[in-house]
Amino acid sequence: MQFGRFRIGLRTLKTAMAVMLIITVFYFFKRPPFVASLASVFALRESWDKTLSFAKIRLISNMVGGLLALVYFLVYSHTHHAVWVPMIFLPFLVIVAIVFLDGFDYNSGVIGALAALLMISLNIPPGATVVYVIDRIADTFMGVLVAIGVNRFASPEPKKKG
């Protein structure tokens, strides 16, 4: 659909559909949809094939970002919320994530890993437990899975050559 210079394409509609599904499902499970919605936006690509190949990288990067967020939470809790932990230790974990993913040639997953790490780490509410962090890690995986599903079932069938 074209409006002068502006258009609404299939990827735009699929992205909105993925976010809508996550918000709706998470509403019924009384879970915050922010992390999953953002993960789905990061993972959704213009085609099923590109989404599927990127999803592997996204799942690995989510795992790296999520595990580092768990490390952050444990250190932050153990130090009784010391101010140096977000100021010094969290940027150190950013370096660890970048170096690790670059070392395994997952450079395209760096932004996703850092998004997961920072979204989880910088939004830990007072009094949260390790369950909160694990829930947010699970949310990132759910967002990617919704993006895969939406892109699989909301994409037109590829035209057969021949």
Rank of each mutant, 00 (worst) to 15 (best):
I124T: 05
M119G: 07
K160E: 15
F104W: 13
A36C: 03
P91M: 08
I23D: 06
R136C: 12
I23P: 09
L117C: 04
A43M: 06
M17I: 11
T15K: 11
L38V: 11
M63D: 05
N107C: 12
D105G: 14
I8R: 03
R5M: 15
P86S: 06
L145K: 14
F100G: 04
I111Q: 11
H81V: 11
D102M: 12
A115D: 04
P91W: 10
V133M: 06
L118Q: 08
I22V: 10
H81F: 11
L59P: 01
R136M: 12
Y72P: 02
K50C: 07
P86A: 02
M87E: 11
A39P: 00
P91S: 10
M87L: 15
V131H: 10
L90Y: 04
P125N: 02
V94F: 15
K160T: 14
L93V: 05
F6E: 06
V96A: 05
M17E: 05
N62H: 05
L122Q: 08
A116Y: 06
L59H: 00
D135K: 08
I23F: 11
A113N: 00
V19W: 09
G149Y: 00
P86N: 06
L117E: 06
I148E: 00
I98L: 07
F34R: 09
S53W: 02
I95D: 13
V99K: 12
F3S: 08
F104M: 13
M20G: 14
Q2I: 09
G112F: 02
M1P: 08
G109H: 13
F34Q: 09
K161D: 15
A154C: 14
I137K: 08
G109W: 09
V85F: 05
M17C: 12
I124R: 01
L70H: 07
I134F: 08
V99M: 13
V64S: 01
A147S: 05
P91V: 08
I95G: 14
A97C: 10
L67D: 05
Y132P: 02
F28C: 07
A39D: 00
R7A: 15
I88P: 09
G127R: 08
L90F: 02
L117V: 03
P91D: 03
V110G: 06
Y27I: 08
M17N: 08
I88R: 15
P32K: 14
T129Y: 01
F42C: 04
P126K: 11
P33T: 07
I98K: 03
I95N: 15
K14D: 06
M63F: 13
T51C: 07
S155G: 02
L13I: 10
T140K: 12
T129R: 10
K14P: 12
E46L: 04
F73V: 01
V64H: 02
I95P: 13
V19F: 11
E46F: 09
N62K: 07
I8V: 10
S53M: 03
A16H: 07
F28Y: 04
V144Y: 11
D49Q: 13
N62Q: 04
V35G: 01
S77L: 11
Y72C: 01
